[in-house]
């Protein structure tokens, strides 16, 4: 879809309103409940394990560049770096995009400074490996194997290299936490990693970890937005089904549905199947 039709624009407006409303409420001090996300809680466990073993942590933000997914990955990286800086644990960040590489350097510098340990920041640990998919995978595997990393984090956009990374992490005995919006790669991470963050939990990462009111408000707003979408799906399914039965089948006609039901329902069906700009 290159341009929004009326129903898309309307739904988008409602979702944006809900998210912004919850952000404003949270900033005004409203109490918000957030459910536990085991994958994100496991981050602390994984950092702790690396500290106990005295080995490094490996972090990969995937192979795509600067986009919403990449920015979210940098937020999670920031949390991991701060945690690792507290315990003086080494974090190796492997990057495949030059733009993200510069941001990761800044994030690392800032995280160590924030924890009062700027001397621990080692620029060589933020590595631009390659912008080619399998060259990146190959180099990452090399780093993981040579350093015998204790924990691996994969947060970002991954493609065919996901299983190569996750299986290597498993073979070196690392505890692994992964999160990706690429649904095609989720089965590989679920099979090979100890914890996997699924779907929109990926975008909940920064809010969940920072407990910042603005982000928590946004997270609750997301849940409300999902409720709206669920309502739309249910309404759409019912209306299309009933309209189909009443208007298009003998059973509908036999039950008299074609006389009593369709008028209002067809309006709903029309809304969900509105042609572009109609």
């Amino acid at each position: 879809m290159k341009h929004a039709n009326l129903s898309v624009a309307l739904i988008e407006f409602i979702l944006c309103f809900l998210i912004l409303y919850k952000i404003v409420s949270a900033r005004r001090g409203a109490e918000l409940f957030i459910r536990k996300i085991p994958g994100l809680q496991a981050i602390d466990e994984a950092v702790g394990r690396a500290t106990e073993m005295g080995r490094a942590i490996f972090y990969s933000p995937g192979i795509q560049g600067l986009n919403i997914v990449g920015l979210q990955s940098m937020s999670i990286l920031s949390h991991i770096l701060r945690l690792a800086a507290k315990f003086r644990t080494r974090v190796i960040v492997a990057l495949a995009d030059a733009v993200l590489f510069t941001i990761a350097q800044e994030v690392a510098r800032e995280a160590y400074t924030h924890e009062g340990t700027p001397e621990l920041y080692e620029p060589q640990d933020i590595q631009f490996l390659s912008d080619q998919q399998f060259a990146y995978a190959s180099a990452s595997v090399g780093v993981m194997t040579r350093e015998r990393v204790a924990s691996c984090f994969y947060f970002g956009n991954f493609f065919a290299e996901s299983l190569i990374l996750a299986e290597t992490g498993h073979h070196v005995g690392a505890i692994q936490v992964a999160g990706t919006p690429e649904t095609a790669q989720l089965p590989f991470f679920i099979a090979a990693c100890d914890y996997t963050i699924i779907g929109d939990e990926y975008y909940a990462g920064s809010a969940y970890l920072s407990k910042e009111p603005t982000l928590l408000g946004s997270l609750v707003g997301q849940d409300w937005a999902k409720l709206v979408l669920i309502a739309c799906v249910v309404l759409g399914v019912i209306s299309v089904t009933v309209a189909g039965i009443s208007g298009g089948t003998a059973l509908g006609a036999q039950l008299g549905l074609d006389r009593h039901w369709p008028a209002a329902l067809l309006k709903v069906v029309e809304f969900f199947s509105l042609p572009v700009g109609g």
Binding site: P181, Y203, L219, A225
Partner: peptide, 10 residues
């Protein structure tokens, strides 16, 4: 659906 909402919010 969840991903789309998450992306929209972010």
């Amino acid at each position: 659906f969840g991903l789309a909402v998450g992306m929209l919010a972010t």
